[in-house]
Computed example of a mutant assay.
Amino acid sequence: MPTILITGGTGLVGTALASLLREKGHRVILLSRHTLPGNPDVFQWDYRKETIDPEAIRQADHIIHLAGAGVADKRWSAKRKQEIVDSRTKTAALLVKALREIPNKVRSVISTSGVGWYGPDASIPNPRPFEETDPADADFLGDTCRLWEASITPVTGLGKRLVIFRVGPVLSTKGGMLAEFRKPVRMGVAPILGSGKQVFSWIHIDDLCRLYAEAIDRDGINGVYNAAAPHPVDERTLILALAKQFKGRYFVPVYVPSFLLKWLLGEMSVEVLKSTTVSVKKIRTEGFQFIYPSIDAALANLCG
């Protein structure tokens, strides 16, 4: 079985993905800033110092690039925004440099991007779901995703198959958006952000991991794909469905006004209040079938 090298392998998605790949019989090795004594499957790299253990590149048959500072982990100061960009683009550039300079057998690179590539739904003259051919938005996340994808694209010139998944908000009980929403819901409060009408193009973590795994196994998957469930949902529907899972009828919907979110979150509030509906027609045309296509199925699995 092939060896899969994962960057960002200790994060929310990386941990779940590594587990799935091992179950499928793959050997999984990781790139990390910190090695673990006695663990031969963890190799060191540091994009700030532009260093990478060449043995990781030599051993890999495929690379899955997940590394990047959490977009919603901290308030967007100028320093934090630069870290968000650098942790994506400079790690990608380091991989490209390593693949160019180190003899290797890598056949494909599967990289992450985000649905933040797209603007708000209202930015399309005739409203429709965003498709992979639509241009990047001019806001911070749109520009970040554009730079992110551009930084990994040179691997195609090295003869590597490149797949880029523009990932929507990932639903998991172990972190991310759902874990944050669960906190007030457990106390009987269902927070509806702004109008609650903004659409989230979400994806269940199991379906996302299956997407990466299929991209490894199938050479026909090539290029850019939206990675989101077939049925996006507005925030109000999501939070009320979550509240019903945990509290039945015993919860109180509380609207959090937009001005308060802007005060609390600063520029990041734009993303919380933005409605972005993406199409997954392209990946479904490749034959991928979602286990959790609807929010009810996803929450029943995650919270049942």
Rank of each mutant, 00 (worst) to 15 (best):
T3R: 06
L5F: 11
G9W: 01
T10R: 15
T10Q: 09
L12A: 00
A16Y: 10
E23R: 15
K24M: 11
R27P: 12
P37C: 09
G38C: 08
P40R: 15
V42N: 08
F43S: 11
W45M: 10
D46Q: 09
E50V: 07
T51A: 10
T51L: 14
T51N: 12
I52C: 08
I52S: 05
E55P: 13
D61G: 14
I63H: 11
I64N: 13
A67I: 02
A69W: 04
V71W: 01
D73P: 00
W76T: 00
K79W: 01
K79L: 04
K81H: 03
D86V: 00
R88C: 03
L94E: 06
K105W: 09
S108T: 11
V109S: 11
I110V: 13
T112H: 09
V115G: 03
G116Q: 02
W117Q: 12
Y118R: 13
G119A: 12
G119F: 02
P120R: 14
P125T: 12
P125M: 10
P125H: 04
N126R: 12
F130Q: 02
E131W: 00
D134G: 04
A138K: 14
R146Y: 03
R146G: 02
L147W: 10
S151L: 09
I152T: 08
T156W: 00
G157I: 00
G159M: 02
L162Q: 01
R166L: 02
V167A: 01
L171I: 03
S172E: 00
G175Q: 03
A179D: 13
A179L: 06
F181S: 05
F181E: 01
F181K: 03
R182A: 06
K183V: 12
P184V: 10
G188V: 03
G188N: 06
G188I: 05
V189A: 11
A190W: 01
S195W: 07
Q198G: 08
V199G: 04
F200H: 10
F200E: 01
S201I: 07
S201Y: 05
I203C: 05
I203K: 07
H204G: 05
D207M: 08
D207W: 07
C209I: 09
Y212F: 11
A213T: 10
I216P: 08
D217N: 09
D219M: 07
D219A: 14
G220A: 13
I221T: 04
G223P: 07
A227W: 04
P230Q: 09
P230G: 06
P232Q: 07
V233G: 03
V233Y: 03
E235D: 05
E235T: 06
T237E: 08
L240S: 08
A241R: 12
A243P: 07
R249V: 07
V252P: 00
S258K: 15
F259Q: 06
L261I: 03
L264Q: 13
E271W: 01
T276F: 00
V280W: 02
K282H: 12
R284Y: 02
T285D: 14
G287P: 14
F288H: 11
F288V: 03
Q289I: 13
Q289S: 15
I291Y: 11
P293M: 11
I295T: 06
D296E: 14
D296P: 06
A300H: 08
L302T: 02
